[in-house]
Amino acid sequence: MDIESLYYFSELSKSLNMTHTANRLYISQQTLSNHIQRLENFYGTPLFYRKPKLSLTSAGTEVLKFADMVIINHQNLKDTLSDMSKEERGTIRFSSSALRLSTCFSAVLPKFHERYPLVDFQITEAVTSKLVPLLTSNDLDLGIIAYSDSHPEIEQKLLLNDKLYLCVSEKLLDQFYPLTKESLKEQGIQGIEITHFSELPFCAFKNIVWNKIRSCFDIAGIQPKIYSYSTYTPLGFQLCSQGFAACIMTQMHLANHLKEIPSDMNIFPIYSNGVHLPHQLAIAYSKGRYLPLYMKYLIELLLEYASTVETVHLAHKADPLV
């Protein structure tokens, strides 16, 4: 038995498909099969049922728990020894949504590589629902997720209170609120309930942010008007900028696209029950995961970046159209 065999066994247990696992690990099926056979010979018991389809035996389930523990402890030891020897080299498996990768992650990368030029990244795009299982199974080192108390299996370090804003063009307000537009703008610049703008068409997104907005409408018994529904946030911002619909944007997104915000765009803080509608982001990693110095430095840079984003003033009331 060796760590390599335990690693291959753990990976096969995730997909329960020899072909897919071998292809993903860039090894032959025969090599993968040999490692599994080696473990079964060592423990003297089958770890998988082969028919009707591949599945773990009771013994396999127990070995999997042991394998996962050995793999993470092995990685922790490597990172600890690397810190002790000051090698300052390694790999960070990092994931976040596309929007956060293109904003906060890309912003800190140059400074990080200046300090740790020998550390490389394996970067994947994923939303929170996909990210958490990857962190739990130690397939990722770090990720940026929407903060939640419902993930006790991972550590979360609060990164940013990513405030939510209603973005709506002056043209759209003229169209849907010709008589009350100015009073709505006066209220909106101070912070306003999203349900006060229920007549507007919205660019909705398949994400946690829109779920929060939809919940506000549901509580008020209002069916929001949907102009478009997609996973591509930049599209919504473009449609909003052109006056086709309103959209909801975060502090992080707007702070990184200040030059792209049209002058006729109103930006109103969204409130719920008198306070800014919360949307907290966190840096997350698996519990028990040893963080080498270079990972701690990356976290430090991300926290520094987030603190600058929070100070950007975004609320804006556009001038009336002439």
Rank of each mutant, 00 (worst) to 15 (best):
F176I: 10
P269D: 02
I270E: 06
V322Y: 08
K14C: 09
H151W: 09
P278S: 01
S82N: 15
E186V: 10
T45K: 08
A246D: 02
L109R: 04
L277K: 13
S28D: 07
L158H: 15
E153G: 04
R214W: 00
Y116M: 11
T61L: 12
N23P: 00
A315T: 06
E300F: 15
D218C: 03
P320M: 07
C240L: 08
K130Y: 03
Y116R: 07
V108H: 11
F237R: 04
H313E: 13
T19I: 14
M1P: 02
I192L: 07
A246H: 06
I208Q: 13
L54D: 04
I154Y: 04
S95K: 03
L25P: 10
I248D: 06
L184C: 05
K65Y: 06
S85G: 00
K78Y: 00
F105E: 05
H313I: 04
V209N: 02
Q175S: 12
V119Y: 12
Y26S: 14
R89E: 13
H279R: 04
I92S: 08
V312N: 08
L173W: 08
Q251I: 02
A67H: 01
K259A: 15
L166E: 02
Q251R: 13
D218R: 09
L172T: 05
F112Y: 08
N273P: 00
S13G: 06
E11W: 04
F121Y: 05
E114H: 14
E87C: 06
A282K: 01
T136C: 05
G191N: 06
T124W: 00
T45F: 06
L16G: 10
T19R: 12
V209S: 08
T31H: 05
V132L: 12
Y26Q: 08
K317L: 09
P320F: 06
